[in-house]
Design a protein around this nucleic acid. Structure first.
Lengths: 135, 135
DNA sequence: TTTGATTGCGCAATAC
DNA sequence: GGTATTGCGCAATCAA
């Protein structure tokens, strides 16, 4: 089973990305804290058209960082949840499979008993039974 | 669950961690080709300590970009695979649950038949049966 | 050592 | 305006 779906996507390069944070950490494996220092104004909800107009989100504003941080938490939470769900699903699958097998065996056994009993019935000459209990 | 309402951006955005933007684009919704020009040497496998020493991986070298691109593809592939697996697991779960229910019903039915047959047996006076097939 | 596969993580878009 | 999901790229790590 192998389906190598390789789509010729050459786009999406997104250069730039000098991750290093302002702190200078080139690649901190564990340090989601880029900058604690306030680098730019933010208390002015409106009017920011000044200075580099654009709809830039000003990645250094406190609000921005707070929003990011909150989202990061939400993301983490959501992913943990999904992961847990999948794990539970996996367990359930195993559990159900086992029960299923057991059920099949039980049915086999019951069928065997029923067949035996019926054969026994038919075998008896002194029993003019011809009825069929059900189905 | 609705995910086909609007997919305006075919190409993703960039904007990674803080600073950078060598290209100047802060968060362009469409930036397939940020930099096509080779910005730094890459034909020298060793010796790069000069120039901003550091163990920086030189994020602009061609090799780096190639490795990144490969990995991105691998990541995409891996995630699609995982997603597919979970989806299949979900389907399987539903399927198994249904079968399970059916099996339970079947067992109930068989048990009923068996019981009926046995009762019928016991009811017969002209039959000195005392055996118990099994279990 | 190199390369594909996984995984944790943050970003941004978007669903809710 | 706020959280929850989702796709994506990066980097670390695993596994061949």
């Amino acid at each position: 089973l192998d389906l190598s779906s390789s789509l010729p996507s050459q786009i999406e390069t997104c250069a730039q990305t000098s991750v290093s944070l302002t702190t200078g950490q080139p690649t901190p494996p564990t340090t989601p804290e880029p900058v604690s220092a306030v680098s730019s104004a933010k208390s002015s909800p409106r009017k920011m058209g000044r200075e580099k107009g654009k709809k830039s989100v000003d990645r250094f504003s406190v609000e921005y960082r707070q929003r990011r941080e909150r989202n990061n938490i939400a993301v983490r939470k959501s992913r943990d949840k999904a992961k847990r769900r999948n794990l539970e699903m996996q367990d359930k699958l195993i559990e159900l499979s086992a029960e299923n097998e057991k059920l099949h065996k039980t049915i086999e056994q019951l069928t065997r008993e029923l067949t035996g009993l019926r054969d026994f019935f038919k075998q008896i000459p002194s029993a003019p039974f011809a009825g069929s209990e059900s189905r």
